[in-house]
Design a protein around this nucleic acid. Sequence first.
DNA 1: ACAAAAGTGTTCGAATTACACCCATGG
DNA 2: CCATGGGTGTAATTCGAACACTTTTGT
Lengths: 236, 236
Amino acid sequence: MRIAQYSSKNRMLVAVDCIIFGFDGTELKLLLIKRGFEPEKGRWSLAGGLMKRDENIDLAASRVLKELTGLENVYMEQLYIFGEVERDPVDRTLSVVYSSLIDINRYTQQINQDYHAEWFPLKKLPSLIFDHRDMVALAQQKLRYKAAFHPIVFEMLPEKFTLPQLQHLYEGIFDTLMDKRNFSRKVLSTGLLVKQKDKEKATSKRGAFYYKLDKRKYQTKFNAFLNFIPNPDSIR
Amino acid sequence: MRIAQYSSKNRMLVAVDCIIFGFDGTELKLLLIKRGFEPEKGRWSLAGGLMKRDENIDLAASRVLKELTGLENVYMEQLYIFGEVERDPVDRTLSVVYSSLIDINRYTQQINQDYHAEWFPLKKLPSLIFDHRDMVALAQQKLRYKAAFHPIVFEMLPEKFTLPQLQHLYEGIFDTLMDKRNFSRKVLSTGLLVKQKDKEKATSKRGAFYYKLDKRKYQTKFNAFLNFIPNPDSIR
DNA sequence: ACAAAAGTGTTCGAATTACACCCATGG
DNA sequence: CCATGGGTGTAATTCGAACACTTTTGT
């Protein structure tokens, strides 16, 4: 009876779609590609493609991202699987969504002219195909949730970064403003940041000291919960 | 080029597996079924089955759970997709894992003799097929994470429950002991509990007052983060 | 009368918030 | 010399942790 279900009539296609959040030191952005094939050719979408039958899901996500944007070796994690029956009009297709956080400036070389990929400010996204807008909304929600408790967003910063940059990033994620005195006290109290001797001088005359992440401590303290949200009600 | 990938050679099977956590007032348990078909017939496994091609994923999970355990209308949420290439020896099969929290006593009628389903204490699980042990470990981790910040675990309690029961549940989830004075102060301070006039008299001579969840407030306050973990280091 | 679980308050230290001024520098 | 953003300290409050005794009642 049940073993009969190990039959092929229920096989289906599985896609991966990659949500790439990026931070340029000021603003939170999302990487989109201009879809190069039908249906919906020419419209903006997440970097996505079909997973192969003999391919691990995580590797499929990396491959698709590489093929469509040129990005390689970026931090990615599985977010959710979307499976409404009618979500892709051509064929029954599930989509496993991956989410990623990167430092935009670190990867400008990789995202070159060969790819029709472009960064869009999170607040000014174009319309997206299928259910991609829902995917982005879910990813944003999860990013907030994680950022509220973990120092994970260091994935989106350069090797060296300043406290004002870090604060701008958190403000972007939560769409709120924070007090810089309280912010620096809290973030420094984690003991995860190492102050550098040099300064970032591009955005201010005085310059802001660089910090680096103490990666050893970061690994072990990952589960030490931080509470970065100034006030739950202020999150929009 | 790329449209050629909208071909059928990459179709694959997709299963759903259901992790059912239950609480009986004292102990955290997991619902397992004796697998009724090859391979691995006769061994214990999560309630799982293949998803149909014309079926929504969430509905597939509900259907499979109903078919294998008799359970209906339980709170379920998608946890993760497992997709190692060799995870199922018979055929390439992804598994979408769902996780669920229920009040064991409320559903004893539904889980009847027709089904080879059985509750196992979380600390004394039998060996499980395929990667099901990994699935359980991940679900447990996520349950802790959520329970640490949300009053979500009310899904696992009866309509009326006592503070000692609620505390035992949290102690089961975190495998730790909590101070009942601090616990009750914290949980009552949420304003989500409504004290009842009657008492539960089965487990003590004096009896413990019942409480009910204020569902209106629960809906709106769901995102008010609670911090139930006594001390992050004490979580094993 | 006693065993067993329920219920309740206080004190202390830590963390969080609100808030305002001086600093360094490039122009 | 001044405009711009960087950097720091303190007081008031809230929150979390530790801790022990009294109440109720079935046996």
